[in-house]
Design a protein around this nucleic acid. Structure first.
Lengths: 222, 222
DNA sequence: CAAATAGTGTCTCTAAGACATTATACT
DNA sequence: AGTATAATGTCTTAGAGACACTATTTG
């Protein structure tokens, strides 16, 4: 009954952040076949004797192969079939992690998502699904805040939304909405933003209880 | 390299519809161990030699074990671990199908989701996730229309939203919104609703191009 | 003080909620 | 005719977009 052809079972993690060139993804260069030398999402086998679940395997991969821990990861979707891995029939459970730039170790290779193409396996598809998911969640939650350093300023959050969604809503409406709904809470401190050392310092905020909140936000494109 | 302990890989499908008692799920009684005699979601092994992918396996299960085809199914999430199946480490890719009552074969066992508890494996969890997903999608799309016979009337659609979301928005606002946004298109015919054979006949509608549309809908609870 | 960025106030207009009113079907 | 249900009209009000204006920081 369990004598079916075996299925290669893996996890892959799409680590997204906002880097100097906007929304970016962490990629590794494959050191062995298949696709040796090609860029790929960090991933690994699900080890039945070690991982309590696929979710746990994703955490392990993130910790051991990327050096990132203490981040929120979320299941994205599962991709499977005979074609996606030349070694045979395979199934991968894909995850998304939204992290601030500072959580990514030195030397990791970050790539602006716009420029990424030609990844190993079906990782282009997986990355596309991850970005779609982020865009979708951004339109009704404070998800982009997870991409920022804590605490963050309101202009920074605005920029994150604008970058992810590709729209530029009215800044004052944005401010009103986000504050009215309690999606972020003031941390009491102030900080110069932008980095250019000019202009008024901005209030900083954190996510209440560290959690992304959902709310209704409907930005028209401009 | 591929000498890892093997993982039982399956798919499970949550078939939802609106039956006489509201939102309901199609369940089968298990005919063998484990959980023999218990209710469970229809499911089956992913057969590497037969199914092009897990998605294809879900279609096959739906067709062969349930007798339903030509429906839209959507991946929900993947559940895995050593505990969920007594036979060993397992992984299941769960799917949701939203179907009209007429698409369900005679003799299938439908159960109002409110009353379902004690399913085999972790199927209570999976069902819960499916219902959450449906509720979530209902708040920004015409998803509940997929649960209705085609063509459907506007009052029927309203009732579907009310049942799924558990709220009763103003009927006239609902009508304006849904029509203004083009989520449904008139089919030209009329039909008596309710079944009690009373009252004015209602215009019937279909989904444009048969597709669920997303739009902004924000119902306050009442 | 000038420049740059952060934040507020106010006006307009759209659209949701409430609810009264009209229309159409059946017995 | 009477009743039940479908559909429309209208009023009020909350909130998004637009944009002018004020505040605070650095050079």
């Amino acid at each position: 009954m369990s004598s079916h052809p075996s299925i290669i079972t893996t996890v892959d993690v799409v680590v997204l952040t906002i880097g100097p060139e906007g929304l970016s993804v962490l990629l590794n260069t494959r050191t062995r076949e298949p696709f040796e030398g090609r860029l790929a999402l960090p991933g690994g086998y699900v080890r039945a004797d070690e991982d309590a679940s696929a979710d746990a395997a994703a955490f392990r991969v993130l910790r051991d192969k990327v050096g990132v821990s203490d981040v929120h990861i979320e299941q994205l979707a599962t991709f499977s079939g005979a074609q996606r891995d030349p070694r045979g029939y395979s199934l991968t459970v894909a995850y998304v992690a939204l992290v601030p730039l500072s959580a990514i170790p030195e030397g990791a290779s970050l790539h602006p998502v716009r420029e990424v193409r030609g990844l190993a396996f079906d990782h282009d598809t997986i990355l596309g699904a991850a970005v779609d998911r982020l865009r979708s969640k951004s339109s009704y939650s404070s998800a982009p805040a997870a991409l920022l350093e804590k605490p963050f300023t309101l202009p920074e959050l605005y920029a994150a939304y604008a970058d992810v969604l590709g729209v530029s809503p009215d800044p004052s409406s944005f401010r009103r909405k986000v504050l009215a709904v309690g999606a972020i809470t003031p941390s009491g401190e102030k900080r110069g933003s932008g980095g250019r050392g000019k202009g008024r310092a901005a209030e900083t905020y954190v996510l209440p209880r560290g959690e992304v909140r959902t709310f209704d936000i409907t930005f028209k494109s401009r």
